[in-house]
């Protein structure tokens, strides 16, 4: 039994790589039936952790649920940056990789604009992308996406304010994934490091639950290093200067004006999110330019929004219904 438990995987839905560039791979998911949606949806995940939280296991998969409802789903896998990638900045990620992936998907479907589903930091990237290239985004969905980084309950942001991020990145180069993980765990050191494992005793005789637990553990500790330049820019412009709200954000030579986000927006935040507090996400309504803004407050946490039973019942159906009305 132990051997079986050790052998857990995530990323369960069949997929095909349709575009590669550097370490970035654009995947197209294959559902059990042909998609009925005319406009495909591209998932833009955060740079931290692996994007397969959206496709963790068969019965806990946002991707699978969307496919089952007829959506056509693509996903960008950022890969694992190494020292040769330390100079990759937000310009490369947003005006480079994301734009080219969007173009590839649009071209495959003969469209000018596609749907984008941004997750966490990927949601912030998606907002920037939609502001710079509104003509390429038909509908924008953001999940657990921070917009206002200066709310009083944002512990991560609080900790970055006194950091000399230039010194930090110049010294470390890329920021180790292990260090990122450590920082996340120190947000709640007792709960995330002790209480969680004490709770394991409750499921020790439940093989399926144990596998779920181990799968989640594997995902949590599978953290790519962060490309130094992108980390520097994200901390400086988003966390420290709060430019998404305050204005003045530039990605490469492109101005980011969220008033240009005029396509329909669905913003989903988690009420118990300790990484992106609701207060950081809710203000999106006031800064985007769209008149078609929908918000969903999910009863759960930053991870539960993908993997909990409630998430399976609520999140994908909401996204699908919302998209269907805007097809």
């Amino acid at each position: 039994m132990l051997r079986k438990l050790d052998d857990v995987h995530y990323g369960v839905t069949a997929k095909e790589a349709v575009y590669r560039e550097d370490k970035v791979v654009l995947y197209h998911f294959k559902g059990d039936k042909a998609p009925t949606a005319k406009t495909p949806t591209l998932i833009v995940y955060a740079l931290v952790n692996r994007p397969f939280m959206t496709d963790l296991q068969e019965d806990r998969s946002l991707v699978r649920n969307l496919l089952a409802r007829g959506e056509d789903v693509y996903l960008i896998d950022w890969g694992y940056p190494d020292a040769a990638d330390r100079y990759i900045g937000l310009d490369d990620y947003i005006n480079g990789y994301i734009r080219r992936c969007v173009d590839v998907v649009a071209k495959r479907h003969g469209l000018k604009a596609i749907n984008i589903l941004g997750v966490c930091q990927g949601g912030a990237f998606s907002l920037c992308f939609a502001a710079i290239y509104p003509e390429k985004v038909k509908n924008l969905i953001t999940m657990v996406t921070p917009v206002d980084f200066h709310t009083p309950d944002n512990m991560l942001s609080h900790w970055t304010q006194g950091m000399d991020v230039d010194l930090f990145v110049d010294t470390l180069g890329n920021v180790p994934g292990d260090l990122m993980n450590y920082c996340y765990l120190t947000l709640k050191p007792f709960r995330l490091n002790h209480q969680k494992y004490i709770g394991l005793v409750d499921i020790l005789d439940d093989k399926a639950e144990l596998e779920n637990f181990l799968r989640m553990e594997k995902w949590i500790f599978d953290s790519p290093n962060q490309a130094g330049q992108a980390f520097r820019e994200f901390i400086r412009d988003f966390y420290q200067a709060n430019k998404l709200v305050e204005g003045g954000l530039k990605i490469g030579d492109k101005d980011v004006d969220l008033k240009r986000v005029t396509m329909p927006v669905l913003n989903i935040y988690a009420e118990q999110d300790h990484l992106v507090p609701p207060s950081a996400s809710i203000p999106m309504k006031n800064v985007v330019g769209t008149k078609d803004y929908t918000v969903l407050a999910f009863k759960g946490g930053h991870i539960g929004i993908y993997v909990s039973g409630r998430a399976q019942r609520e999140v994908a159906p909401t996204i699908h219904d919302w998209l269907s009305k805007r097809a």
């Binding site: 292990d178 490091n193 500790f221 599978d222």
Partner: peptide, 11 residues
């Protein structure tokens, strides 16, 4: 507790 976090995937 903070020291206890240290592991192969969190440093």
């Amino acid at each position: 507790a903070l020291r206890g976090i240290s592991s192969e995937g969190a440093k």
